[in-house]
Nucleic acid binder design. Structure first.
Lengths: 120, 120
DNA sequence: TTCGATGTTCGTGGAATGTCGAACAAGTTA
DNA sequence: TAACTTGTTCGACATTCCACGAACATCGAA
Protein backbone atom coordinates (compact mmCIF):
# COMPACT_ATOMS: atom_id res chain seq x y z
CA UNK A 1 0.00 0.00 0.00
CA UNK A 2 1.07 3.49 -0.46
CA UNK A 3 -0.04 3.54 3.05
CA UNK A 4 2.41 2.59 5.70
CA UNK A 5 1.31 5.96 7.00
CA UNK A 6 4.07 6.31 9.43
CA UNK A 7 6.49 3.60 8.82
CA UNK A 8 8.51 3.39 11.97
CA UNK A 9 11.58 5.48 11.74
CA UNK A 10 13.90 4.65 14.60
CA UNK A 11 15.20 7.50 16.66
CA UNK A 12 18.94 7.94 16.44
CA UNK A 13 19.22 6.32 19.83
CA UNK A 14 17.40 3.27 18.63
CA UNK A 15 19.64 2.64 15.68
CA UNK A 16 22.04 -0.20 16.07
CA UNK A 17 25.41 -0.52 14.45
CA UNK A 18 24.81 -4.12 13.52
CA UNK A 19 21.56 -3.32 11.77
CA UNK A 20 23.09 -0.40 9.90
CA UNK A 21 26.06 -2.46 8.83
CA UNK A 22 23.77 -5.23 7.74
CA UNK A 23 21.67 -2.83 5.74
CA UNK A 24 24.77 -1.52 4.03
CA UNK A 25 26.14 -4.90 3.10
CA UNK A 26 23.98 -5.28 0.03
CA UNK A 27 24.96 -3.74 -3.32
CA UNK A 28 21.45 -2.62 -4.19
CA UNK A 29 21.00 -0.85 -0.91
CA UNK A 30 24.39 0.80 -1.07
CA UNK A 31 23.44 1.91 -4.55
CA UNK A 32 20.25 3.44 -3.24
CA UNK A 33 22.15 5.25 -0.55
CA UNK A 34 24.54 6.58 -3.12
CA UNK A 35 21.69 7.90 -5.21
CA UNK A 36 20.33 9.65 -2.15
CA UNK A 37 23.73 10.93 -1.12
CA UNK A 38 23.20 14.31 -2.71
CA UNK A 39 20.68 15.02 -0.01
CA UNK A 40 17.75 15.41 -2.34
CA UNK A 41 14.53 13.68 -1.66
CA UNK A 42 13.56 11.18 -4.34
CA UNK A 43 10.32 9.61 -5.38
CA UNK A 44 10.09 5.84 -5.51
CA UNK A 45 9.45 6.07 -9.21
CA UNK A 46 12.71 7.80 -9.90
CA UNK A 47 14.73 5.00 -8.50
CA UNK A 48 16.07 2.54 -10.99
CA UNK A 49 17.29 -0.79 -9.74
CA UNK A 50 17.53 -4.16 -11.45
CA UNK A 51 15.01 -5.83 -9.19
CA UNK A 52 11.29 -6.33 -9.04
CA UNK A 53 9.07 -3.73 -7.50
CA UNK A 54 8.45 -5.81 -4.44
CA UNK A 55 12.13 -6.38 -3.97
CA UNK A 56 12.88 -2.71 -4.21
CA UNK A 57 10.19 -2.06 -1.67
CA UNK A 58 11.84 -4.58 0.58
CA UNK A 59 15.25 -2.95 0.30
CA UNK A 60 13.83 0.45 1.00
CA UNK A 61 12.20 -0.94 4.07
CA UNK A 62 15.43 -2.43 5.32
CA UNK A 63 17.11 0.94 4.92
CA UNK A 64 14.27 2.68 6.66
CA UNK A 65 14.14 0.20 9.53
CA UNK A 66 17.84 0.61 10.08
CA UNK A 67 17.35 4.36 10.30
CA UNK A 68 19.31 5.12 7.19
CA UNK A 69 16.49 6.70 5.23
CA UNK A 70 13.31 8.52 5.93
CA UNK A 71 10.13 7.86 4.03
CA UNK A 72 7.41 10.37 3.45
CA UNK A 73 4.11 9.81 1.82
CA UNK A 74 2.31 12.28 -0.33
CA UNK A 75 -0.84 11.16 -1.93
CA UNK A 76 -0.15 7.96 -3.73
CA UNK A 77 3.53 8.53 -3.98
CA UNK A 78 6.32 8.00 -1.53
CA UNK A 79 9.54 9.86 -1.18
CA UNK A 80 12.80 8.86 0.40
CA UNK A 81 15.72 10.77 1.66
CA UNK A 82 18.90 10.00 3.46
CA UNK A 83 18.94 10.69 7.20
CA UNK A 84 22.39 12.07 6.96
CA UNK A 85 22.40 14.18 10.07
CA UNK A 86 20.92 11.50 12.26
CA UNK A 87 23.38 9.01 10.95
CA UNK A 88 26.30 11.32 11.51
CA UNK A 89 25.15 11.99 15.01
CA UNK A 90 24.73 8.39 15.88
CA UNK A 91 27.65 6.92 13.98
CA UNK A 92 30.10 9.71 13.21
CA UNK A 93 32.03 9.23 10.03
CA UNK A 94 30.43 5.96 9.11
CA UNK A 95 28.21 7.14 6.30
CA UNK A 96 30.91 9.20 4.68
CA UNK A 97 33.38 6.37 4.88
CA UNK A 98 30.93 4.01 3.25
CA UNK A 99 29.97 6.49 0.59
CA UNK A 100 33.50 7.28 -0.43
CA UNK A 101 34.43 3.61 -0.40
CA UNK A 102 31.37 2.83 -2.48
CA UNK A 103 32.11 5.45 -5.06
CA UNK A 104 35.71 4.41 -5.46
CA UNK A 105 34.44 0.90 -5.96
CA UNK A 106 31.41 1.72 -8.05
CA UNK A 107 29.40 -0.37 -5.64
CA UNK A 108 25.75 -0.24 -6.46
CA UNK A 109 26.38 1.37 -9.81
CA UNK A 110 23.47 -0.63 -11.14
CA UNK A 111 21.18 1.61 -9.17
CA UNK A 112 20.35 4.97 -10.60
CA UNK A 113 17.73 7.54 -11.33
CA UNK A 114 15.11 7.58 -14.00
CA UNK A 115 16.05 9.21 -17.27
CA UNK A 116 13.64 12.04 -17.25
CA UNK A 117 14.57 14.27 -14.34
CA UNK A 118 10.94 14.31 -13.37
CA UNK A 119 12.50 14.34 -10.00
CA UNK A 120 11.79 16.13 -6.84
CA UNK B 1 44.25 -28.13 11.19
CA UNK B 2 46.61 -25.61 12.45
CA UNK B 3 47.52 -25.78 8.90
CA UNK B 4 45.63 -23.62 6.48
CA UNK B 5 49.17 -23.06 5.30
CA UNK B 6 48.50 -19.93 3.46
CA UNK B 7 45.07 -18.81 4.22
CA UNK B 8 44.22 -16.43 1.46
CA UNK B 9 44.68 -12.89 2.57
CA UNK B 10 43.24 -10.60 -0.05
CA UNK B 11 45.37 -7.73 -1.22
CA UNK B 12 43.93 -4.35 -0.38
CA UNK B 13 42.84 -4.06 -3.98
CA UNK B 14 40.90 -7.26 -3.77
CA UNK B 15 38.90 -6.29 -0.75
CA UNK B 16 35.33 -5.40 -1.44
CA UNK B 17 33.21 -3.00 0.51
CA UNK B 18 30.27 -5.34 0.51
CA UNK B 19 32.29 -8.19 1.93
CA UNK B 20 33.81 -5.98 4.60
CA UNK B 21 30.45 -4.58 5.57
CA UNK B 22 29.01 -8.06 5.69
CA UNK B 23 31.83 -9.25 7.87
CA UNK B 24 31.24 -6.37 10.25
CA UNK B 25 27.52 -6.90 10.58
CA UNK B 26 27.82 -9.63 13.15
CA UNK B 27 28.25 -8.86 16.86
CA UNK B 28 30.78 -11.59 17.46
CA UNK B 29 32.96 -10.45 14.63
CA UNK B 30 32.75 -6.81 15.64
CA UNK B 31 33.71 -7.94 19.10
CA UNK B 32 36.74 -9.71 17.75
CA UNK B 33 37.76 -6.64 15.83
CA UNK B 34 37.40 -4.57 18.96
CA UNK B 35 39.65 -6.93 20.86
CA UNK B 36 42.23 -6.60 18.12
CA UNK B 37 41.85 -2.88 17.88
CA UNK B 38 44.82 -2.19 20.11
CA UNK B 39 47.00 -3.44 17.32
CA UNK B 40 48.44 -6.34 19.23
CA UNK B 41 48.59 -9.74 17.74
CA UNK B 42 46.55 -12.31 19.63
CA UNK B 43 46.60 -16.04 19.83
CA UNK B 44 43.44 -17.95 19.07
CA UNK B 45 43.45 -19.26 22.59
CA UNK B 46 43.28 -15.84 24.10
CA UNK B 47 40.07 -15.01 22.39
CA UNK B 48 36.97 -15.52 24.43
CA UNK B 49 33.66 -15.66 22.63
CA UNK B 50 30.38 -17.35 23.57
CA UNK B 51 30.48 -19.78 20.66
CA UNK B 52 31.88 -23.19 19.90
CA UNK B 53 35.42 -23.53 18.70
CA UNK B 54 34.36 -24.35 15.18
CA UNK B 55 32.10 -21.33 15.10
CA UNK B 56 34.90 -19.07 16.27
CA UNK B 57 37.09 -20.52 13.58
CA UNK B 58 34.37 -19.69 11.09
CA UNK B 59 34.12 -16.08 12.20
CA UNK B 60 37.85 -15.64 12.09
CA UNK B 61 37.84 -16.97 8.58
CA UNK B 62 35.14 -14.55 7.48
CA UNK B 63 37.19 -11.70 8.87
CA UNK B 64 40.31 -12.97 7.19
CA UNK B 65 38.61 -13.54 3.85
CA UNK B 66 37.27 -10.03 3.93
CA UNK B 67 40.76 -8.74 4.50
CA UNK B 68 40.06 -7.41 7.95
CA UNK B 69 42.52 -9.58 9.80
CA UNK B 70 45.73 -11.37 9.09
CA UNK B 71 46.45 -14.83 10.33
CA UNK B 72 49.86 -16.17 11.07
CA UNK B 73 50.77 -19.66 12.05
CA UNK B 74 53.50 -20.59 14.42
CA UNK B 75 53.90 -24.21 15.22
CA UNK B 76 50.54 -25.44 16.36
CA UNK B 77 49.20 -22.08 17.26
CA UNK B 78 47.68 -19.35 15.18
CA UNK B 79 47.78 -15.64 15.72
CA UNK B 80 45.55 -12.92 14.43
CA UNK B 81 45.94 -9.24 14.06
CA UNK B 82 43.97 -6.43 12.57
CA UNK B 83 45.05 -5.23 9.12
CA UNK B 84 44.54 -1.69 10.17
CA UNK B 85 46.79 -0.01 7.65
CA UNK B 86 45.49 -1.99 4.72
CA UNK B 87 41.96 -1.27 5.76
CA UNK B 88 42.62 2.40 6.16
CA UNK B 89 44.24 2.53 2.79
CA UNK B 90 41.44 0.73 1.06
CA UNK B 91 38.50 2.16 2.97
CA UNK B 92 39.63 5.36 4.67
CA UNK B 93 37.84 6.09 7.90
CA UNK B 94 35.66 3.02 7.82
CA UNK B 95 37.37 1.00 10.49
CA UNK B 96 37.64 3.89 12.89
CA UNK B 97 34.02 4.79 12.39
CA UNK B 98 32.93 1.25 13.09
CA UNK B 99 35.20 0.93 16.10
CA UNK B 100 34.02 4.09 17.73
CA UNK B 101 30.42 3.27 17.01
CA UNK B 102 30.92 -0.20 18.41
CA UNK B 103 32.49 1.03 21.60
CA UNK B 104 29.78 3.57 22.24
CA UNK B 105 27.29 0.79 21.73
CA UNK B 106 29.18 -1.94 23.53
CA UNK B 107 28.69 -4.07 20.45
CA UNK B 108 30.48 -7.34 20.79
CA UNK B 109 31.10 -6.85 24.46
CA UNK B 110 30.60 -10.56 24.88
CA UNK B 111 33.92 -11.08 23.19
CA UNK B 112 37.05 -10.62 25.20
CA UNK B 113 40.43 -11.94 26.14
CA UNK B 114 41.37 -14.82 28.35
CA UNK B 115 41.90 -14.02 32.01
CA UNK B 116 45.52 -14.91 32.32
CA UNK B 117 47.44 -12.56 30.08
CA UNK B 118 49.30 -15.60 28.78
CA UNK B 119 49.19 -13.56 25.70
CA UNK B 120 51.57 -12.91 22.94
C1' DT C 1 55.37 -43.90 18.63
C1' DT C 2 51.69 -42.47 21.28
C1' DC C 3 49.27 -38.68 23.30
C1' DG C 4 47.63 -34.15 23.77
C1' DA C 5 46.80 -29.55 22.10
C1' DT C 6 45.24 -26.64 18.47
C1' DG C 7 42.47 -25.53 14.62
C1' DT C 8 40.14 -26.77 10.29
C1' DT C 9 36.62 -29.09 7.81
C1' DC C 10 32.34 -31.69 7.36
C1' DG C 11 27.53 -32.60 7.89
C1' DT C 12 23.50 -30.89 9.70
C1' DG C 13 19.87 -28.06 11.34
C1' DG C 14 17.44 -23.68 11.88
C1' DA C 15 17.05 -18.83 10.93
C1' DA C 16 17.53 -15.02 8.03
C1' DT C 17 17.90 -12.98 3.40
C1' DG C 18 17.05 -11.83 -1.57
C1' DT C 19 13.99 -12.27 -5.26
C1' DC C 20 9.89 -12.98 -7.68
C1' DG C 21 4.94 -12.85 -9.04
C1' DA C 22 0.38 -12.31 -7.48
C1' DA C 23 -2.92 -10.26 -4.62
C1' DC C 24 -4.30 -6.33 -2.12
C1' DA C 25 -5.06 -1.45 -0.54
C1' DA C 26 -5.46 3.45 -0.97
C1' DG C 27 -5.35 7.56 -3.61
C1' DT C 28 -6.09 9.69 -8.51
C1' DT C 29 -8.25 10.33 -12.43
C1' DA C 30 -11.54 9.56 -16.04
C1' DT D 1 -18.32 4.54 -10.07
C1' DA D 2 -14.84 2.44 -12.74
C1' DA D 3 -10.15 2.30 -14.03
C1' DC D 4 -5.38 3.19 -13.24
C1' DT D 5 -1.26 4.17 -10.46
C1' DT D 6 1.65 3.31 -6.70
C1' DG D 7 3.45 0.60 -3.13
C1' DT D 8 2.92 -2.95 0.38
C1' DT D 9 2.19 -7.60 1.79
C1' DC D 10 1.91 -12.54 1.03
C1' DG D 11 3.50 -16.96 -0.02
C1' DA D 12 7.17 -19.63 -2.34
C1' DC D 13 11.85 -20.70 -3.17
C1' DA D 14 16.76 -20.77 -3.38
C1' DT D 15 20.68 -19.24 -1.11
C1' DT D 16 23.38 -17.85 2.50
C1' DC D 17 24.58 -17.57 7.24
C1' DC D 18 25.23 -18.98 12.14
C1' DA D 19 25.84 -22.50 15.28
C1' DC D 20 27.04 -27.06 16.90
C1' DG D 21 29.35 -31.56 17.49
C1' DA D 22 32.26 -34.88 15.45
C1' DA D 23 36.03 -36.21 12.73
C1' DC D 24 40.40 -35.12 11.00
C1' DA D 25 45.19 -33.16 10.44
C1' DT D 26 49.38 -31.25 12.17
C1' DC D 27 52.70 -29.98 15.58
C1' DG D 28 54.91 -30.73 19.91
C1' DA D 29 55.72 -33.38 24.00
C1' DA D 30 56.08 -37.63 26.68
Amino acid sequence: MVVMRQARHPDPGEMTLIEVMGALSDPIRVGLVRVLADGRERGWGELRAPVAKSTLSHHLRVLRDAGITRTRQEGTRCFVELRRDDLNTRFPGLLNAVLSAASSDAVGAQVGLADGPSTA
